[in-house]
């Protein structure tokens, strides 16, 4: 049996954490893009599009992320795509993230008084101008804190990619545990690395919340 020193374990976990970060960034950026598209569809004022967005959000908020991962992983291979665990996790997490961000942003846009839309219309601004010059600059300030706060959920969500066999921090932890039989130490280390990734984001979110809610 190979001997693992504490440093070996930590080094391997940190190397695997790079994949956790990569997957988190991919999902968050992808989720932001899809979320923006969904938000635009919701604001377009067309009923069928709004229902579609509503159904999408309900679907992804009402089912476990683990099921979404399984469905993407097995569903795409059923359709004949040879999909890697990385791609499946990236897709599933992107959908998951976009649904939650759309819902968060809906709340932020809806807190703005409806009168602002009407006032802009009276001033002769069209839909695009109203959105980009009046609504978004205000909504972004409100949305920043909860969006950063949600990024913590994305980082934590990537841990589930370990279940479909993608080697990131959690999977590396279980693999090292199988080799060393020191679960207490290894899972404590894994938890601390996640904490080191997530806690700064949580703090940033709290700070943004204070900053922008004070000025409103």
């Amino acid at each position: 049996m190979i001997e693992f020193t504490n440093w070996d374990i930590l080094r391997n976990l940190l190397l695997a954490a790079r994949w956790t970060i990569a997957l988190s960034l991919t999902a968050f950026i992808g989720g932001t893009i899809v979320g923006l598209l969904l938000t635009a569809m919701r604001l377009s004022g067309r009923r069928p599009l709004q229902w579609l967005v509503r159904g999408y959000v309900e679907l992804f908020q009402g089912t476990p992320l683990l099921m979404q991962l399984f469905l993407v992983f097995f569903g795409l291979s059923l359709l004949g795509f040879d999909i890697s665990a990385w791609a499946a996790a990236a897709f599933a997490l992107t959908f998951f993230t976009s649904a939650f961000l759309t819902e968060i942003w809906r709340g932020c846009i809806d807190t703005l008084p409806r009168g602002q839309w009407e006032a802009s219309r009276c001033l002769g601004l069209n839909f695009k101008q109203t959105l980009s010059r009046v609504i978004l600059p205000q909504a972004v300030r409100v949305a920043l804190a909860p969006t950063v706060g949600f990024s913590v959920q994305v980082v934590k969500g990537t841990a589930l990619a370990s279940i479909i066999g993608f080697v990131e921090l959690t999977k590396a932890g279980t693999m090292l545990n199988n080799a060393t039989f020191e679960p207490f130490k290894i899972f404590a280390m894994v938890a601390l690395i996640y904490f080191a990734l997530c806690y700064p984001l949580s703090l940033a979110s709290q700070r943004l919340e204070k900053k922008f809610n004070g000025s409103r």
């Binding site: 913590v152 934590k156 932890g173 679960p183």
Partner: peptide
């Protein structure tokens, strides 16, 4: 709040 549920679960089930 800043660690994944699955890691908490593994810590309790395998670690404790």
């Amino acid at each position: 709040r800043n660690t994944p549920f699955i890691v908490q679960l593994f810590f309790i089930f395998f670690g404790l």
